[in-house]
Design a protein around this nucleic acid. Structure first.
Length: 219
DNA sequence: CCAGACGTTGTT
DNA sequence: GTCTGG
DNA sequence: CCAGACGTTGTT
DNA sequence: GTCTGG
């Protein structure tokens, strides 16, 4: 599962990497991006802009917006079948910029958080879907969810799920694809050989902690 | 036909 | 909105 | 994901 | 235990 990640590069790096417009109201470094927070995404409908959407997908038809608390991930294996996701996966996909994500290895004795990043890419995209929900006053709430899949050899040591990470060349395809087979082919486990995992302190546990110190390797 | 659900992960 | 279950 | 709350009435 | 909030 992916329930926490970081997007801590400065805005100039993000703009350069994704070839997008500067978004003036986003400059924060997020070492501890958590569900319900407004986080930067790049949508298929507006691929030249960085927008801030809330993490936790609320389907457009939903009467109870708290459903978003549970929709932080979407299983890649069944995403075309689920009522909450099927329209999104066809028409509303997004890139979720990140520079690492966190998973907790749980044993009987303890929960050990790990930070996972890519060896050669500072910034990468998690595959996402998004939707827009209108409240009773007609106010639009834009939300997103991160797609998960089975773990690769590195991740299976820590956890039984991992987020879908897109190859650089696949980012544009993820936004533009309109063929189900093409979309499906992008929902894969990123190669373990290109990733590294490192234990970090329990500081990451509290979403209130948001400092560079979170990335410090243990020991 | 209408009513009701619509999700994931982890833990038991 | 759309699908499943009754 | 983890942390933290989890309740009402009446009074200021 | 379970839900909400970050």
């Amino acid at each position: 599962m992916c329930g926490r990640y970081s997007i801590s590069k400065n805005i100039e790096e993000i703009v350069e990497n994704f070839k997008i417009e500067v978004l003036k109201d986003f400059s924060a470094q997020l070492f501890n991006a958590a569900p319900m927070m407004k986080l930067p995404v790049i949508t298929n409908t507006d691929p030249k802009k960085l927008q801030l959407f809330s993490w936790g997908l609320i389907p457009s038809w939903s009467k109870d917006p708290t459903i978003g608390n549970k929709m932080i991930n979407a299983r890649g294996e069944t995403i075309f079948e689920k009522p909450s996701f099927r329209s999104c996966i066809r028409n509303k996909r997004c890139l979720v910029p990140a520079d690492s994500f966190y998973e907790w290895k749980k044993t009987e004795e303890k929960k050990q958080p790990f930070r996972i990043k890519l060896k050669k890419r500072g910034l990468f995209s998690l595959a996402g879907i998004w939707d827009e929900w209108k409240d009773v006053d007609g106010k639009i709430k834009s939300t997103f969810s991160i797609i998960t899949t089975s773990p690769n050899n590195l991740m299976s040591e820590i956890h039984d799920r991992m987020p879908v990470i897109l190859q650089k060349d696949d980012e544009e395809k993820w936004l533009l694809a309109n063929d189900v087979n093409e979309i499906s082919s992008l929902i894969t486990s990123y190669p373990a050989i290109e990733m590294e995992a490192c234990p970090i302190s329990l500081m990451v546990n509290s979403p209130r902690n948001n400092s560079a110190e979170i990335h410090t390797p243990l020991n």
